[in-house]
Amino acid sequence: MLHIVVCIKQVPDSREIRIDPKTNTLIRQGVPAIVNYYDLHGLEEALRIKDEFGARVTVITMGPPSAEKALCQCVSMGADEGVLVSDRAFAGADTLATSYVLALTIQKAEDTWGPVDMIFCGKQTLDGDTGQVGPGIACRLDMDQLTYVELFESLDIEKQEVVVRRHLEDGVERVRARLPVLITALDILNRPRRASLPGVLRAARYKPIVWTTNDFSNLDRSKIGLKGSPTIVSKTWVPEPKQVNTEYVDSANVVAAATDLLNRLYATELPQKLGWS
């Protein structure tokens, strides 16, 4: 049977994050945690493959114990197993250290449930927002990567081939690749399903598998967590909110308003910058 791994991350719902105006720090308290938006699209695609071809879908995440909930949500949608890689020693990881631990986890998942044919990641996370972890995992495991996938065209199990459409700024690329392959999902890839009632019931009782540093025999401690992360956040600051002096254009008479607006635009440097005559 196909074995598909989906990497998901629990992230704070960025809609709810606010900045404390006094301390300039993030107010995370009370911000609900959600499964990273794009990752659900990766999971959905894996589940569609499972529906069509039959597959074992293993969902993995590195994060705090509370991320179990995110895994349960994936199980409710139809994933077979959820693995939480969690240890204080993993904390503070940047993308390099994260891709290392996730690659190790995928290898261990292979040892446990068989070789992996496909890995799905999200395009990027809402908090890290780098899109680097997916390529990092593919690189470490020496497999091909298909990033920014907007359509999963076909899977040919005989030939061990997939065809996908990659979304680029200036167009769309149809690409064929051989398994095993890592795919990062865009939100237009599909519409994640709502869990069925039996799925919810299963998830309500499901206990994710938890692996800590002790569960990896070949783990190099210098490569994980803060220590294994070459990037350092040297400072953070809140950008001065753009001070706009909003000018209201009187709209009582629309024709006059339109002319008024144009006059104001023409009074700026815009005509020069945009080459308006």
Partner: peptide
């Protein structure tokens, strides 16, 4: 919402 300066 924030800017961060990152070094390696």
């Amino acid at each position: 919402k924030m800017l961060a300066t990152i070094l390696c």
